[in-house]
Design a protein around this nucleic acid. Sequence first.
DNA 1: CTGATGACAGTAC
DNA 2: AGTACTGCCATCA
Length: 106
Amino acid sequence: MSKAMFEKQVYLLLAAIPAGQVSSYGQLARLAGKPNGAREVGRLLAGLGPDCGLPWQRVLNAQGAISLPRPGSGELQQALLEAEGIVFKNGRCNLKKYAWPGPEQV
DNA sequence: CTGATGACAGTAC
DNA sequence: AGTACTGCCATCA
């Protein structure tokens, strides 16, 4: 039951991330109610698929880098984020600058 | 049930 | 700053 709520919260938060901003697995997990459920968030996104209709590409790890198991998808994600205005630096972006929710949202 | 794995995170060196 | 180890939680063999 809580599990369903958790994934629902994750979907909601994911859909709430505005273009040009990114969030981390741990951040979403924390907002969803699981401070240490980062892995569950990643598992959830992995089960969704590339065309689930949600901005899964706006979710990065705590280092602001792409953690996709398949390099091909990683390239796609980076391209999508760059199309939204995210500037990548050596495979990483300024998480502090694009982090959501930022200090102004909190 | 036990052990291993994973789109992670935090701390230690 | 970059690498290594450990911790958490859920799923799979």
